[in-house]
Write a protein that binds this DNA or RNA. Sequence first.
DNA 1: ATTCATGCAAATCGTTTGCAACCCA
DNA 2: TGGGTTGCAAACGATTTGCATGAAT
Lengths: 151, 151
Amino acid sequence: MGKISDSFKEQLREKGYKLTVQRQAVLDVISEHEGEHMSSEEIYENVKKTYPDIGLATVYRTLILLNQLGLIYKIDFDDGRSRYELNREKEDHRHHHLICTECGLVEEVEEDLLESLENQIFENKGFIVKDHKVKFYGICKKCGESMKSEK
Amino acid sequence: MGKISDSFKEQLREKGYKLTVQRQAVLDVISEHEGEHMSSEEIYENVKKTYPDIGLATVYRTLILLNQLGLIYKIDFDDGRSRYELNREKEDHRHHHLICTECGLVEEVEEDLLESLENQIFENKGFIVKDHKVKFYGICKKCGESMKSEK
DNA sequence: ATTCATGCAAATCGTTTGCAACCCA
DNA sequence: TGGGTTGCAAACGATTTGCATGAAT
């Protein structure tokens, strides 16, 4: 709770925003559910456990704010709702997501390996890459195995 | 018009779907606007020029169908609406998109270069990659230059 | 005290769906 | 003919917004 809250506090002050219980609570919930890719609604439901009076609109507004501050990332798994995950600052690059088209499982890949592509993009197009979003679609290990054994 | 229509016709017949003027018209519009990443609404407006009676719902239904058949790709540029582009079958791999965070320009990169990453993903996770969606965010050439000259 | 943030409900907006009329195969 | 298709309008669901109240600095 310590480190995140402190830099959060600073960042808010810097931009003239206020530190409210609600904003803390939302950030806390996302922190406590690392790797879960929660939707706005799920975050809302979870925050209500410790802060029952929070409104859904506040959650939405807070998510926009946290995303702007770079504390969280918005991700989209094509299911019609936005999901969020904590920005783990230890990582120098963003991780990628593997989405199984059979069972819907979402895994993460820590390897980045996009540096040479990004350099090439700069050489060829003069485009300076600052960030990327990468999704791989395919068959996860489990589904691949059960497909094999079914034959 | 020839090649696309023919394989389109075949694919529809194969799955028991019918070839209608509306479906043709939607596919034609997308074909005639390569590289434009049109939204459903934009496609609808364009189709109306040659087929004024078409309904928006039909366009939506057709886009879903064409996407399922693999004739078009759905892309998402985080502006709250889905966009579509023709699947250029000549390419053995899908291209990537560069999105300028300054001016909103969307460029394409033909280079793929994800094969080694995809192989590594299979080695490490047993996940078989079938497809990917890759977006790079950053500063396009023009914006980079005008930022430099402003200093 | 001032300014920003909240909660509520209503409004938005892209997309989907039910249904009767319609048209391709 | 008959089942897939269409157009229309209504329904949906996620997200946004207006506004009066409440809280943080």
